[in-house]
Amino acid sequence: MSATEPRPKRVFLVGLMGAGKSTVGIALAALLGCKYLDNDVLLEQQARASLQELATAGRQALHEQESRQLRALFDISGPFVAGVAASVADRADDMALMVAAGRVVYLRATPATLAQRVGGGEGRPWLADDPLPLLESMFAARDRAFRSVDHVVDTDGRDSEEIAAELAARLVAEE
Rank of each mutant, 00 (worst) to 15 (best):
A3V: 12
E5L: 12
R7S: 08
P8V: 00
P8S: 01
K9R: 12
R10C: 07
V11C: 05
G15W: 05
L16N: 08
G18C: 07
K21S: 05
T23Q: 13
V24H: 01
G25N: 02
A27N: 00
A27L: 00
L28R: 04
A30L: 02
L31I: 04
Y36M: 15
Y36V: 11
Y36G: 05
Y36N: 09
N39M: 10
V41S: 10
L43V: 07
L43G: 01
Q46R: 07
R48E: 10
S50D: 12
E53R: 14
L54Q: 00
A55G: 11
T56W: 15
A57E: 13
A57I: 04
L62A: 02
R68C: 08
R68V: 10
Q69S: 05
R71K: 14
F74I: 13
D75N: 13
D75L: 12
I76N: 14
S77M: 07
S87H: 10
V88A: 03
A92D: 04
D94C: 15
M98K: 01
V99C: 08
A101H: 08
Y106G: 09
L107G: 00
R108I: 06
P111F: 07
T113K: 08
L114F: 09
A115K: 06
A115V: 03
R117P: 06
R117W: 03
G120R: 13
G121F: 09
G123A: 13
R124K: 09
A128V: 03
A128I: 01
P131D: 08
P131K: 02
L132M: 09
P133T: 00
L134E: 01
L135K: 07
F139D: 09
F139E: 03
A141S: 11
A141V: 12
A141T: 11
A141Q: 12
S148L: 13
S148T: 14
V149N: 03
D150I: 06
V153M: 07
V153A: 04
V153Y: 03
D154A: 13
T155E: 03
T155H: 02
D156P: 07
G157S: 05
D159L: 00
S160H: 10
S160G: 06
E161K: 11
E161P: 01
A164F: 00
A165N: 03
E166P: 01
E166V: 11
E166Q: 15
A168I: 01
A168Q: 04
A169R: 13
A169K: 11
